[in-house]
Amino acid sequence: MDKPDIDEVPGARADLLCFLVATVAASHTLTREWRIDHVVESSRLWLARSGVSMHWLNRVLLGQLAMKIAKRELKAAGIAVRQSDVQVLFTGEMKLNHASSVVQKMMKLCKQSL
């Protein structure tokens, strides 16, 4: 059975983008490196866990947008990801923690970017 396209699931594209931004920001906070491999792997994991598909070119474009947001737009929007924030960005299952105020701010920014 084919998986539904990400755009057939309301809010899925914004959720994936926010997950990628959070992953990139958390990774940078911990390693001080901008790691594209984390974006690629996080995208694969999110899509598999969510049971949706996304064309490879759209994944690349969304990953680039996530890097841009994490590098430039978080700070401009007053969103700082500190080491103490990293754990609260995600649940124990490595899903976005929508109860986190940082995630809520990121999600708003991501929705505006789409």
Rank of each mutant, 00 (worst) to 15 (best):
D2L: 06
D5V: 06
D5F: 04
E8C: 05
E8Q: 14
V9A: 03
G11Q: 04
A12K: 05
A12E: 11
A14Q: 10
A14R: 01
C18H: 01
F19I: 01
L20V: 04
L20H: 04
A22T: 10
V24E: 06
S27A: 08
S27N: 12
L30C: 03
E33A: 07
W34Q: 08
R35F: 01
H38S: 08
V40C: 05
S42P: 00
R44E: 14
L45W: 05
L47S: 09
L47W: 07
R49P: 00
S50D: 10
G51V: 12
S53V: 10
H55I: 12
L57Q: 15
V60Q: 11
L62R: 11
I69Y: 02
I69W: 03
K71Q: 14
R72N: 14
E73D: 15
L74M: 06
K75R: 10
A77E: 13
A77F: 00
G78E: 01
I79V: 12
R82F: 06
Q83G: 15
D85S: 12
Q87F: 07
V88I: 07
T91A: 09
T91F: 12
A99E: 15
A99Y: 05
V103S: 06
V103W: 08
K105T: 06
M106R: 05
M106A: 03
L109R: 13
C110W: 02
Q112S: 11
S113M: 13
S113L: 04
L114D: 01
